[in-house]
Amino acid sequence: MKTSPQASVQSSLLIHQAIPEFQDWLSRRGLSSETVRRYHMDIRQFSNWLAMNSNGPVLIDEITTKRLEGFVDYLSKERNCLPRSVNRKINVVSVFFQCMVKKKYLLENPAEDVERMKVPDIERTFLSKDEVERIIGAIDHPVIHYFTMTMAYTGIRVNECINLTKDDVDFDANCVRVINGKGGKNRVVPMNLKLKEQLQIYLAEHRPQTDSLFFFALKKTGTVSAQYINRTLKLACEKTGIEKHVTSHFLRHSFASYLVQKDTHVAVIQRLLGHASLKTTSVYLHVRQEDMQDAVNRIDF
């Protein structure tokens, strides 16, 4: 088992002194402000846990693999975090130490040898075509109605949809441009012709008079929030009698699942969703019981 070496090129830092340097390093790597914010929350949680368990400030070169394993136990046993959440936090801590190594405060990353928790394979729930149509139809607020329609027809993330500007929705090129999406990446998503027609109606008849540059804008705030979207989706489900716990991510997930049912090549779905690897996209490849029945019915020895 490795421990952080006591020798370092520069004088060691207290972890709370290192956090601002870590944030600056993340920002200069081109990560979005939201990603930097989430990384900061996770590393701050780790720092607070260390201080609580050490009765005082901790130098970064005093943090060993064993102490990190104690943090894993704390998250999983005391905070009851799910394995996926624990792994995400440990990955953030590992990136933090990677930064400290690059800045010559440490020679090694003590998080490298921390075992990640096994994540059970849980097939995700998705909405059927009928359920998507019923939910969108039940949303009376015009801005949110067209917002959810855009998510359902493009599969973009809720924050990507929130950040769309009027220039990003290109009716001439029939596409939606996602700028600085997850991981700071850009991508172009083709626009369904039905969606194009509906969004033109939205601009002409329903978008409030506002100076906001955002494509989806409320008159009062000039934007929309993910919380408001999720609250509206919950009310739409209650109105239509859909008992699933639907959030905005369900629209993205259902977009992918519907394309799978239409026999769309997984590489195309990967590009549309903006996934870095096919492994991430594979969680959407549902195998339904009726599909398996149909498959075995084709056997004719």
Rank of each mutant, 00 (worst) to 15 (best):
N174T: 00
V224G: 09
K194M: 15
A217Y: 05
L195D: 03
F216S: 03
R207D: 12
K219L: 13
G184S: 10
D172V: 04
L213T: 14
T210R: 03
P208Q: 09
C175M: 04
A217P: 07
L218N: 13
A217K: 01
Q200I: 02
S212V: 10
K182I: 04
A217F: 04
F216R: 02
Q209Y: 01
L203V: 04
N192I: 10
R207E: 01
Q209L: 12
A173W: 10
L199V: 11
V188T: 10
A173I: 02
K219H: 14
D170W: 03
E205L: 14
N174M: 14
A226G: 07
G183F: 11
L193N: 13
P208K: 09
V178Q: 08
Y202G: 06
L218M: 14
V176T: 05
N192K: 10
K182A: 05
D172R: 11
Q200K: 14
C175N: 03
D211K: 14
A217E: 07
A204L: 13
V189P: 02
V178M: 05
G222D: 10
F215C: 02
L199Y: 00
E197K: 12
L199P: 01
D170K: 04
P190R: 11
P208G: 12
V188A: 07
A204S: 12
K182P: 05
V224R: 09
